[in-house]
Structure formats: structure tokens, C-alpha cells
Amino acid sequence: MPERTATVASRSGLHARPAALFAEAAGEQPVDVTIAMQGQPEDEAMDAASILSLMTLGAAKGDVVVLRAEGDGAEAALDALVKLLETDLDAE
């Protein structure tokens, strides 16, 4: 399954506004995308489009997370989401 790692760049971590923006973007992708902390087993990965899942994941600035997706458009979807994670969304 295609996967990418990304380092959370937003100052407040994946909370609040960054979490909302990321969940919304994940929901707009043509494929289902999951998110997990690096090192976490794949079957514990959570729905990246769920803001509540993102909030319970508790990723802070500098944490590395793994994104996974499968199917048509998976690669492009992952690239777009990695870019978003590695942007400081609090600064915008």
C-alpha cells in the first residue's frame, strides 16, 4: 500500500484549526486515507478525514506520522496531504 511519512509543522500540533483543515482536505480526496503515529501498527491507523480521530491521535509539532491510501489517485492524494502537514497552518 502506498504510504508517506510527514513531520507535523503546525505550532499547535494536529489540534484546533490545523486538525480541521487537514481533516477537511483528507475528506476531499478520491480515496480513503489513514493516519498513524510513526511506529504504530498499521491496523491501529485511523481515518484521516475524522477530526475527532486526529484530535485523539494527539500529534504535536515535530511528531512524525504515517499516511496510507490505496487505489486510483492514492499517490497524488498522499503527496497533497503530506504538503499540508508540513506547512505551519497556524501561521496562515
Partner: peptide
């Protein structure tokens, strides 16, 4: 605005 946007997303959250 930020709080309302986050709350709106919670309403159709897949986990919930």
C-alpha cells in the same frame, strides 16, 4: 469561526 468550523466537521465525523 475556527471553533464553528471544527464543530461543523465533528457533526459528520466518521468516528462518531
Amino acid at each position: 469561526k475556527a471553533v464553528l468550523e471544527a464543530t461543523a466537521l465533528m457533526a459528520k465525523d466518521t468516528m462518531l
